[in-house]
């Protein structure tokens, strides 16, 4: 397995198909690590609700879309530029090793953790030295 997960494809998107076209599109911070079984990618999405996150893996590309809309209570007046509302978009080349069917995701405290399991044939094996 290679360490090519980090190839960032976000900027290759010609026109992001995000749900809210009027929102500014921001690339979220992320970090990744791997073990023998899977890649784990951690993406910071503060203020984003579970129902506003969409993750797909297609043609070896992980595509994450999310949006954050803050409905300010009545009577609240913004002071300065209000940049609360935004779309997040992240595209990562996960390579052929990842099994798209097994991808799982959890959102906690504004951090989305994605677990991308490796295909059986891509997992590392111990080799007995004779």
């Amino acid at each position: 397995m290679s360490t090519e997960l980090c190839k960032d494809e976000t900027n290759d998107v010609a026109s992001p198909q995000v749900a809210e076209a009027s929102l500014p599109v921001v690339k979220p911070h992320y970090s990744s690590r791997y073990d023998d079984e899977a890649w784990e990618v951690s993406v910071t999405l503060p203020g984003v609700k579970k129902e506003d996150v969409e993750v797909s893996v297609e043609k070896e590309i992980l595509d994450l879309k999310a949006k954050r809309i803050f409905d300010a209570p009545e009577g609240w007046r913004p002071l300065g530029d209000d940049q609360s509302d935004r779309s997040y978009r992240l595209r990562l080349d996960v390579g052929p090793e990842v099994d798209p069917a097994g991808v799982s995701a959890g959102l906690e405290d504004g951090v989305l953790t994605l677990r991308l399991p490796l295909r059986e044939e891509s997992k590392s094996r111990s080799i007995e030295v004779q």
């Binding site: 360490t3 997960l5 980090c6 911070h29 970090s31 791997y34 992240l90």
Partner: peptide, 8 residues
């Protein structure tokens, strides 16, 4: 963050 191999 972890023993990260990359960060944005």
């Amino acid at each position: 963050f972890f023993g990260d191999t990359c960060r944005s």
